[in-house]
Design a protein around this nucleic acid. Structure first.
Lengths: 204, 204
DNA sequence: AATAATTTTAAACAATCATTTAAAATATTT
DNA sequence: AAATATTTTAAATGATTGTTTAAAATTATT
């Protein structure tokens, strides 16, 4: 055993997360999970009742894992510039640790009638975006340009998350090793905030 | 019949594309495709030999459908500003027509050892990015700032494509209808080029 | 130590999967 | 019109799916 006497349910859950993140719900079989967790298919159902229940548990946790840090930092009490730098830095580090996380979350929410959309709809009741409020305040003070700040929000998320969603295409197109790709992502920690801030600070 | 006597193989292929785009390879069954094409499972295999062959055909076409317009415009003989506006406009229109296209392509290339990665590796032999050459030329003339232009490339694609990959999350978080979401995407046709160009034109 | 509760195992379950078969129906060629 | 080739159908194939069963092994309780 690698980890000292890890409980069976945790062993299964961790293995399931690994497999689900790589192959999605449809591409994963209960037997996959059993093998990767060094257990058997009966145990998977014994602890989690069904493949679907296990999946939902992992999906919800992955959803939270992705968006909780973002929400937390956006609601931090920090000056605009520091907040953007921190957001991009933290998210990049999170995604470097878990590069398959966003594809897992977004791909399971791809279609309007996906069960995961309904599942998520319940919990995410608009917690009042402090970031956009902050941008509006700065705009009122004349520090940044006045625009639709939802666009800024979306653009930051796009520039941080998209490269990880398209990792393999980027690696192919730009002929990069994994290490080189990660270096590129590190460079974006400076590039993205600079781009956003330069845009915000220069009037249209 | 809606379309006058559409050939069977085309009927199957179009239905298959619809289903694959919505549910991916793993989430789609041969029976799904048969039902949606108003044929039967034997005909699917008669015309395309296997689910996998049919899928690969559709995947490769979808990959081309996504990246051919980009490559074409990036290699257009247009001034920088016009090129960026055109690229963002055309891509947005393409994605509004086919919003599930990028998720389909990228999700099937999510893992390093995905068959689709190998499949694509063959065809996409670095056709010398004219856009980056153009950026370097402009930088040499002192018209724009000198940076790693791969970052600009990635940032444009991110800002255009990512919103469609995360469409359902954005709609939930910002409480948008489909029409409102598309309106937001239309607004980005101005927002994205303005952001990129403002950044490029102002020295660090 | 005996009993009860929990966990693990191996085997089986029915349902569904992709694919194939072979006969029927249709279209094409001679 | 007869013969041939192509397309379509219905049924069956064996493999794989998620899930369940019931007995065995282990752990906890009395």
């Amino acid at each position: 055993m690698s980890k000292i006497d890890q409980s069976t349910d945790l062993k299964i859950k961790e293995a399931a997360k690994r497999v689900f993140l790589e192959k999605g719900f449809g591409g994963t079989t209960t037997r996959d999970i059993a093998e990767h967790s060094d257990t058997n298919i009966a145990l998977v159902n014994y602890y989690f009742r069904s493949k679907e229940k296990l999946f939902q548990e992992i999906f919800l946790e992955s959803f939270a894992e992705t968006f909780t840090p973002i929400t937390r930092i956006l609601n931090d009490d920090l000056p605009l510039e520091a907040k953007i730098y921190k957001l991009v830095d933290n998210m990049t580090e999170l995604l470097k640790r878990d590069p398959l996380l966003p594809m897992f979350v977004f791909s399971e929410m791809r279609s309007e009638n996906s069960k995961m959309c309904d599942l998520v709809e319940g919990l995410h009741k608009q917690e009042g975006n402090a970031f956009i409020t902050q941008l509006e305040a700065e705009a009122a003070k004349g520090n940044i340009r006045k625009i639709d700040f939802d666009q800024i929000d979306i653009s930051i998320m796009s520039m941080v998350i998209f490269p990880f969603l398209s990792m393999n295409v980027i690696k192919l197109k730009k002929n990069l090793t994994t290490a080189e790709f990660y270096k590129l992502m590190d460079d974006r920690k400076k590039h993205i905030p600079e781009m956003i801030l330069t845009y915000l600070r220069h009037p249209g």
